[in-house]
Amino acid sequence: MGDTENGGGDAAGRLEQVCPECGRLRGGPACACGGAAPPAAPAPGRRPGRDRDPAGRARNGRPRDGLGRPLPYGAQGAPRQPEGVRRSAGRTLTEAQQLLDAGMPFHAHEVLEDRWKAAPEPERPLWRALAQYAVGLTHAARGNPTGAAALLARAAEGLAPFEAAPPFGIEVAAIRRWAAQPAAVSTTVPAPEVPALRAR
């Protein structure tokens, strides 16, 4: 068993796990008193416990860059989108488009995901597909063509039922055409211009 499996590589870390009654490791089969092991110390650079929002819901509090990549605690990140905001379809599309135009597809996905979770049941597949589209764009911008292709394909498939009668003025056909182009996720040729979510 390596040092990382028995309480860390330093002596102080192992001493904290010694039972004061019998002198053996707490909670292990050798501990004669059955003392519980103390909670493990958080890894260096991590906050103890789980990040939570003011309502107590789990939410990663690490700052993120414009493409949603986590940054170290204390770093200056891009402003996060407030989670769980109830927006109309029009407001959702406007805010998501502004974020896409600013080169922040990960943050656009968060706005689209809020609508997906709050929309009436018949609309949910539409918003899920648009959120997947934004995640596909995120992967493409991060230089991950495999992830981008997978998410864009899912988005195009999810949008297919809405192509004949696109709701809310969404450019369903244009988005599906764009997502199907190999150049959309290529790292060797310029990607075609990303269509707007709806006609401007």
Score class of each variant (00 low, 15 high):
residue 11 A to Q: 14
residue 78 A to T: 14
residue 108 A to C: 03
residue 123 E to M: 09
residue 187 T to I: 12
residue 81 Q to L: 06
residue 149 A to V: 08
residue 99 L to S: 02
residue 166 P to K: 05
residue 93 L to M: 11
residue 127 W to M: 11
residue 106 F to H: 14
residue 171 E to Q: 15
residue 108 A to V: 05
residue 186 S to Q: 09
residue 169 G to Y: 12
residue 46 R to K: 02
residue 193 E to Q: 13
residue 60 N to F: 05
residue 196 A to F: 11
residue 183 A to V: 06
residue 106 F to P: 00
residue 96 A to F: 05
residue 79 P to W: 15
residue 110 E to I: 09
residue 60 N to I: 13
residue 34 G to D: 13
residue 5 E to Y: 07
residue 100 L to R: 05
residue 130 L to Y: 10
residue 63 P to W: 11
residue 49 G to P: 01
residue 56 G to L: 05
residue 196 A to P: 10
residue 22 C to V: 15
residue 104 M to H: 10
residue 82 P to G: 03
residue 57 R to V: 11
residue 178 W to F: 09
residue 116 W to N: 06
residue 159 L to Q: 05
residue 50 R to T: 14
residue 168 F to Q: 14
residue 157 E to R: 15
residue 197 L to A: 00
residue 30 A to I: 11
residue 103 G to C: 03
residue 181 Q to W: 06
residue 75 A to F: 02
residue 12 A to E: 14
residue 76 Q to M: 06
residue 24 R to I: 03
residue 11 A to N: 05
residue 160 A to E: 12
residue 99 L to G: 02
residue 186 S to V: 12
residue 129 A to E: 07
residue 190 P to D: 07
residue 62 R to G: 00
residue 132 Q to E: 15
residue 195 P to A: 01
residue 190 P to M: 07
residue 52 R to P: 03
residue 140 A to N: 02
residue 83 E to D: 12
residue 22 C to F: 13
residue 28 G to P: 00
residue 182 P to E: 15
residue 61 G to C: 06
residue 179 A to P: 04
residue 62 R to F: 01
residue 163 E to I: 07
residue 137 L to R: 02
residue 170 I to Q: 03
residue 42 P to R: 00
residue 167 P to V: 13
residue 142 R to F: 02
residue 41 A to Q: 10
residue 78 A to I: 09
residue 188 T to L: 03
residue 107 H to D: 15
residue 31 C to W: 09
residue 144 N to G: 00
residue 34 G to Y: 10
residue 41 A to W: 02
residue 98 Q to D: 15
residue 7 G to W: 04
residue 190 P to E: 08
residue 164 A to E: 15
residue 153 A to P: 07
residue 198 R to L: 08
residue 85 V to H: 01
residue 120 P to L: 08
residue 186 S to G: 08
residue 116 W to K: 09
residue 185 V to T: 15
residue 53 D to M: 11
residue 97 Q to I: 13
residue 78 A to C: 03
residue 18 V to Q: 06
residue 30 A to C: 02
residue 155 A to G: 07
residue 155 A to N: 03
residue 76 Q to K: 10
residue 93 L to F: 12
residue 102 A to S: 04
residue 135 V to R: 00
residue 90 G to W: 14
residue 12 A to D: 12
residue 115 R to P: 04
residue 107 H to V: 08
residue 153 A to R: 13
residue 136 G to M: 06
residue 191 A to L: 05
residue 94 T to F: 09
residue 76 Q to C: 02
residue 33 C to V: 14
residue 34 G to Q: 10
residue 43 A to N: 08
residue 111 V to L: 01
residue 101 D to K: 01
residue 137 L to Y: 00
residue 192 P to L: 02
residue 200 R to V: 14
residue 1 M to Y: 10
residue 133 Y to S: 00
residue 102 A to I: 09
residue 197 L to E: 03
residue 80 R to P: 14
residue 144 N to Y: 06
residue 100 L to A: 04
residue 149 A to C: 02
residue 109 H to M: 09
residue 110 E to N: 08
residue 63 P to C: 04
residue 107 H to F: 10
residue 149 A to L: 07
residue 9 G to E: 15
residue 93 L to C: 08
residue 140 A to R: 08
residue 141 A to R: 12
residue 194 V to H: 00
residue 68 G to M: 05
residue 138 T to V: 10
residue 156 A to P: 08
residue 174 A to P: 04
residue 200 R to E: 13
residue 182 P to L: 05
residue 159 L to R: 01
residue 75 A to V: 05
residue 69 R to H: 04
